[in-house]
């Protein structure tokens, strides 16, 4: 009965959504209204105004930098939330409970050979996003995934030796600290809070600051993803 009511409601919703969608221009058609407004400006002027050829990056790191700041804060919030819900156990106690089966030798071997490559690729993505495909979040996620596969392959006690807890505690906030410094640098160079120094005054500053922000976001996302995994591991 309840299932029937749900399905009926969903069917009703489907009709409503479909009837609205047929009035939209078909995807890919050139008459989509947005083609002639903001994004057109980005595509035509972006490379010149910002200096990066990857326009998605120009939007993320320039025109809508404040959203990227919020986005980095959202993952940090997720970490704070996970630590609030599942506070770290006291690991100095009687060795913890290792009820999980030890990883097999084959897994360990494969992980040991692939993780270095994954780490290099992730780092490359973090640092190369301004010119080609890539970006800090994507690279950070891949670095985080490397930490997770290392934990699964050789056990998280070994994996955590690469990222000791007191280092992780600072890395988690790396993106936020970078943004704090960035916000503070602006007024010093006469550009105002949360703004890049003008290109005329410091021609090299913009590019380096972008790289700095990307590195901060990449390091923070990687550390956060790894820590979220470690705090949930072996709980349930």
């Amino acid at each position: 009965m309840r299932r029937l009511a749900t399905l009926l409601l969903l069917a009703l919703l489907a009709v409503m959504l479909l009837s609205a969608v047929v009035e939209l221009p078909a995807p890919g058609s050139p008459e989509m209204p947005f083609r002639s407004h903001v994004s057109q400006h980005y595509l035509e002027q972006g490379a010149e105004e910002v200096g990066t050829t990857n326009i998605v990056k120009a939007v993320l790191l320039e025109y809508r930098l404040f959203d990227t700041f919020g986005e980095a804060a959202v993952i940090f919030t997720a970490l704070a939330g996970v630590l609030a819900v599942l506070p770290p156990r006291d690991r100095s106690g009687s060795g913890g409970h290792h009820d999980r089966a030890a990883p097999g030798q084959v897994t360990g071997y494969v992980v040991g050979r692939t993780v270095p490559a994954i780490v290099i690729f992730g780092t490359y993505l973090v640092l190369s996003g301004h010119a080609g495909p890539g970006g800090a979040f994507q690279g950070g996620v891949i670095l985080g995934a490397a930490a997770i596969s290392l934990s699964l392959g050789v056990g998280s006690d070994h994996a955590r030796e690469f990222l000791p807890e007191h280092v992780a505690a600072w890395l988690h906030g790396a993106a936020m600290v970078v943004f704090l410094l960035f916000a503070a640098i602006g007024p010093l160079t006469g550009a105002g809070v949360f703004a890049y120094p003008s290109t005329a005054a410091l021609p090299w500053a913009r590019e380096w600051l972008m790289l700095f922000i990307e590195a901060g976001i990449g390091a923070a996302s990687a550390a956060i993803i790894a820590s979220v995994f470690w705090s949930m591991e072996g709980r349930a």
Binding site: A169, W170, M176, L180
Partner: peptide, 19 residues
Amino acid sequence: QLLVSVLALPVTGAALCLP
């Protein structure tokens, strides 16, 4: 400038609470 600072300060400041 005040408006931006008011929004940026608590969010960035939160990151320092953990360490």
